[in-house]
Amino acid sequence: WIARINAAVRAYGLNYSTFINGLKKAGIELDRKILADMAVRDPQAFEQVVNKVKEALQV
């Protein structure tokens, strides 16, 4: 799951650890299995999560 998430978030200019930190700051409580599945099956929803994380990180 970690490898999938890392590959997906790198397309948005983040790395895995920064993304996970941003999830916590944004108050998003999705587990890694769901995030990895979302990255593959629903990229639009995953992009929305990434955008919320970037807002929380102020990137």
Rank of each mutant, 00 (worst) to 15 (best):
W1K: 04
W1N: 14
W1H: 14
W1G: 12
I2D: 02
I2Y: 13
I2C: 04
I2G: 01
I2H: 02
I2W: 15
A3F: 02
A3L: 04
A3V: 05
A3K: 15
A3M: 04
R4H: 05
R4C: 12
R4P: 02
R4F: 10
I5G: 00
I5C: 01
I5P: 00
N6Y: 02
N6R: 10
N6D: 15
N6M: 05
N6S: 15
A7K: 15
A7G: 04
A7D: 14
A8R: 03
A8Q: 03
V9K: 00
V9H: 00
V9P: 00
V9C: 05
V9Y: 01
V9E: 00
V9D: 00
R10T: 14
R10L: 09
R10Y: 08
R10Q: 11
R10C: 05
A11T: 11
A11N: 09
Y12I: 02
G13L: 02
G13F: 03
G13P: 00
G13K: 04
G13E: 04
G13T: 01
G13A: 05
G13S: 04
L14P: 00
L14I: 08
L14M: 11
L14C: 03
L14G: 01
L14Q: 01
N15R: 06
N15Q: 06
N15C: 08
Y16A: 09
Y16Q: 02
Y16C: 04
Y16K: 01
S17Q: 12
T18M: 09
T18Y: 04
F19T: 00
F19N: 00
F19L: 03
I20Q: 05
I20S: 10
I20L: 06
N21M: 13
N21W: 14
N21A: 15
N21V: 13
N21E: 12
G22K: 01
G22Q: 02
G22S: 03
G22E: 02
G22W: 03
G22F: 03
L23Q: 02
L23Y: 06
K24F: 12
K24I: 12
K24L: 13
K24S: 09
K25G: 07
K25A: 13
A26C: 05
A26S: 10
A26Y: 02
A26E: 04
G27E: 05
I28Q: 05
I28N: 03
I28L: 07
I28E: 04
I28C: 07
I28S: 04
E29W: 12
L30M: 14
L30D: 07
L30F: 13
L30C: 13
D31T: 14
D31C: 09
D31M: 10
D31F: 11
R32T: 14
R32C: 14
R32Y: 12
K33E: 15
I34T: 13
I34E: 11
I34C: 12
I34M: 14
I34G: 10
L35D: 01
L35K: 01
L35Q: 01
L35F: 06
L35N: 01
L35E: 00
L35I: 14
A36Y: 15
A36G: 06
A36D: 03
D37Y: 15
D37P: 03
D37G: 08
D37K: 13
M38Q: 06
M38F: 05
M38E: 02
M38Y: 07
A39M: 10
A39W: 07
A39H: 04
A39P: 07
A39T: 15
A39V: 08
V40F: 13
V40M: 09
R41I: 13
R41G: 12
R41V: 13
D42Y: 06
D42R: 11
D42F: 08
D42E: 10
P43N: 04
P43R: 09
P43C: 05
Q44S: 09
Q44L: 11
Q44D: 12
A45C: 05
A45D: 06
A45M: 12
A45G: 13
F46T: 00
F46R: 00
F46N: 00
F46W: 10
F46K: 00
E47K: 10
E47P: 01
E47V: 08
E47G: 09
Q48N: 11
Q48W: 12
V49E: 02
V49Q: 03
V49T: 07
V50Y: 02
V50R: 01
V50T: 04
V50L: 03
V50P: 00
V50S: 01
N51Q: 08
N51E: 10
N51F: 15
N51R: 09
N51Y: 15
N51G: 10
K52V: 09
K52G: 05
K52L: 10
K54T: 10
K54M: 11
K54W: 06
K54R: 11
K54V: 11
K54Y: 06
E55W: 13
E55V: 13
E55K: 12
E55H: 07
A56F: 10
A56S: 08
A56Q: 08
A56N: 07
A56V: 12
A56K: 07
L57M: 11
L57W: 06
L57S: 07
Q58L: 11
Q58I: 13
Q58R: 14
Q58G: 10
V59P: 15
V59M: 09
V59R: 05
V59E: 10
